[in-house]
């Protein structure tokens, strides 16, 4: 029980991740799948940010009156990069969806299956 309490961030992240995964797997609409993917991304980013948290930590801003303990700055940098990557993937996916819509006339996977 104690483990669960101390790792509550883990649990939240996994839960959100699973929500996204559920959408990705179950929804037939490509756009919704992309949304699911975005939710999963959010879960992971949130988790990484929490991983950088230190008990009673302050933002790691160096200045004349900066007193530790600092929260680890690295996760934030990582998540920024991760968001860039996520955005680029989303962009590419949306572009592809537009193309699929234009060429196949639908964005519903079950309908696309019939088109084939």
């Amino acid at each position: 029980m104690n483990v669960l309490l101390t790792h509550v961030d883990y649990i939240a992240a996994v839960a959100i991740f699973l929500v996204g995964l559920y959408i990705l797997l179950v929804k037939q609409n490509l756009l919704k799948k992309i949304l699911g993917l975005n939710i999963m991304e959010t879960a992971v980013f949130a988790f990484i940010v929490t991983a950088g948290m230190t008990d009673n930590g302050v933002p790691p801003l160096l200045g004349p009156d900066a007193v530790g303990p600092f929260a680890s700055p690295l996760p934030h940098a990582l998540v920024l990069t991760g968001i860039v990557v996520a955005v680029s993937i989303t962009a590419l996916a949306l572009a592809l969806i537009v193309r699929v819509k234009r060429e196949c006339g639908s964005v519903e996977l079950n309908e696309l299956g019939k088109v084939e």
Binding site: A13, F17, L21, L24, L30, K33, I34, L37, M40, E41, A43, V44, F47, I48, A51, L74, P75, G82, V85, I89, L92, A93, L96, I97, V100
Partner: peptide
């Protein structure tokens, strides 16, 4: 797009794991 969806999920899993390790 199929490739992308699966690939992105797997990437996220990897990222998640990296977060865990960190």
């Amino acid at each position: 797009i199929k490739y992308l969806l699966l690939g992105a999920v797997s990437s996220l899993l990897v990222l998640f794991a990296i977060g865990l390790i960190f």
